[in-house]
Design a protein around this nucleic acid. Structure first.
Lengths: 236, 236
DNA sequence: CTCGTTTTAATTGTCAACAATTCTAGCTCT
DNA sequence: AGAGCTAGAATTGTTGACAATTAAAACGAG
C-alpha cells in the first residue's frame, strides 16, 4: 500500500461534511444513545468548530432522518420503534430488490462471484466468533449488492438506510445460532445473482430481510432499545 | 368565531423550511433554469432573510439532490442528463412498486376505488386539454398511490422524486396523442390494485414508468428485464 | 396538599461582520 | 501574438454576539 499513487484529492472536504460524517459514525455505532439530546453549543465546543457549520451538519442528518428537530427545543437522536424499523426495512428491501433486478443481465456472473467473496468474509468472521466483523461483513454484502447496480440514486438512499440499520444493530446482541442460516441466505442470494435469476434473487432477498427484521423487532433482548429517560413528545 | 373542527397545529414553520419550500416550488416549476447559479446574497436580499437560514435551506435542497454545491463557487440548479433521469426512474419505480405490494391485502378494494377517482380527474383534465391540470392529476395519482401504502419512508423519498420529475416535466411539452394511453395505463394499475393482484399492478406500473421515461429521454430506456408478469422463473 | 402563576435558566433562531478561496482581467515576458 | 503570471473583485465559509422562545423550577393562593 504505497501512498504515492493514491494521494488524496486536493479538494478539501467542507467542514460540515466532516462534522456530519463524524456524527453519523457516532450515531451508527451507538456512541450517542437514541433519544439523547445534542446541544449545539456543547457539540461545537467539543468539536472545536463554530455553531454555523455544525448547524449545517445537523441539518443534513435531520434531512437524512437520523435526527429530529424540535423548534426551540433542540435536536434529538431518533428512537426507532418496531413499526418504524419495519417501515425502514420496507424501503430497504425495495432498494435492494431493485438493485438485484439491475444486476441480472449485465455481467451477473462476475457480480455473483463478487458477492460470494463477501459471503466468504462472513464465514471467516463467523468461525472466529467476531460479532463486529460479522456485522461489518453483513453490511458490506448489502452495500456491495447495491453498489454493483451502478445506480447512484439507489446507493445514496441505501447508505442512509444502512446507517440506521447499524444503529439498530448496535443496541442488540447477536445470537450464535442464527449466523449459520444467515450466511446461507446470503449465499443463496449471491448464487441466484450469479445464475442470472433475478426473480429468485429478489424472493430470497425478501425472505432474508424478513428474517433479519424478525431478529430486530421481536427479539426478547430488544426491550432496552428506548433510552432510560423517555420524555419523547409524540405531538410536535 | 366559526367553530373549526380540524384546527391545524399552531407550530409555526421554521424559516428555513419556508425558504426551502419556496425554492423547491420555483425549481420544480422551472422558474429558475437548470444550471443557473443561486447567489446567497442575492437570494437573501430578495427573500428578506439573512444568509444563515437561507444557507440551511440550500443545504436541504442540496441534500435532496436538487442543487449541487461547489466549494467557494456557489450553488447551482442540477441539470439532469438522460442517464440521471433514467436512474431517478429506477428508484421511483422501486418505491412505487413497493407501495403497490403493500396495498394489496389491506383494503385494496377501497384503495383501488380511490385511485380510480384520481384517474377520473385525469380524464377531466384531458378533455379540457389543460396540460397543467393533466400533469397535476398524473402526479397526484402517483403520490396518492404511495400515500395509501402508509409507509412514511416511501412517502418521504417519493416526495423528493416527484419534485425532480416535475422539474423535468416543466422543460418539455406534452404531446396529445399519448395522453389517452397514459390514462389507460393508470386505470390498469388502479384496477389491478382493486382486484388485489399485486404482481399485475407491479408489472403494469413497471411498463407505465418505462413509457413515461421514454417520453422524457431521447435514448431508449435500458432493457426492461422482467417487466412481464411471470410466476414461473424465466431462464434464458 | 394541589393547582395555578411567575420567574429563571437554557436552548435555539437570527443577524451582521470578517476571513479564506476562487475566477477573471490585465499585464509582462518570450 | 501567445503563454504565464499577478492583482483585483466577487463569492462563499466561518465566527461571535444578540434576540426570541421554550421548558422547568420556585413560589404563593385556595
Amino acid at each position: 500500500m504505497s501512498p504515492r499513487y493514491s494521494l488524496e484529492p486536493v479538494i478539501q472536504e467542507s467542514t460540515p461534511s466532516i462534522i456530519a460524517r463524524k456524527l453519523r459514525y457516532a450515531i451508527a455505532h451507538g456512541a450517542v444513545a437514541p433519544g439523547s439530546q445534542l446541544g449545539e453549543a456543547e457539540l461545537a465546543r467539543e468539536l472545536g468548530v463554530s455553531r454555523g457549520p455544525l448547524r449545517e451538519a445537523m441539518q443534513r442528518l435531520t434531512q437524512e432522518g437520523l435526527l429530529i428537530s424540535i423548534r426551540n427545543r433542540g435536536l434529538f437522536v431518533i428512537e426507532m420503534t418496531d413499526a418504524e424499523i419495519r417501515d425502514m426495512y420496507v424501503l430497504r428491501t425495495a432498494v435492494e430488490s431493485a438493485a438485484c433486478k439491475m444486476l441480472v443481465g449485465a455481467g451477473h456472473v462476475a457480480s455473483g462471484q463478487d458477492l460470494l467473496s463477501k459471503v466468504a468474509e462472513m464465514e471467516n468472521a463467523a468461525v472466529t466468533g467476531d460479532h463486529a466483523a460479522m456485522s461489518d461483513a453483513d453490511m458490506a454484502f448489502h452495500e456491495h449488492l447495491v453498489a454493483l447496480s451502478g445506480s447512484r440514486s439507489l446507493v445514496r438512499i441505501h447508505t442512509t438506510l444502512m446507517i440506521e440499520t447499524r444503529m439498530c444493530l448496535a443496541v442488540l446482541q447477536y445470537s450464535h445460532r442464527v449466523t449459520d442460516e444467515w450466511i446461507e441466505e446470503h449465499r443463496g442470494i449471491a448464487e441466484a445473482v450469479r445464475g442470472g435469476d433475478g426473480l429468485l434473487a429478489q424472493s430470497r432477498l425478501n425472505d432474508h430481510e424478513d428474517n433479519a427484521l424478525a431478529q430486530l423487532t421481536s427479539a426478547p433482548a430488544s426491550a432496552s432499545i428506548d433510552s432510560r429517560r423517555t420524555r419523547t413528545r409524540t405531538r410536535s
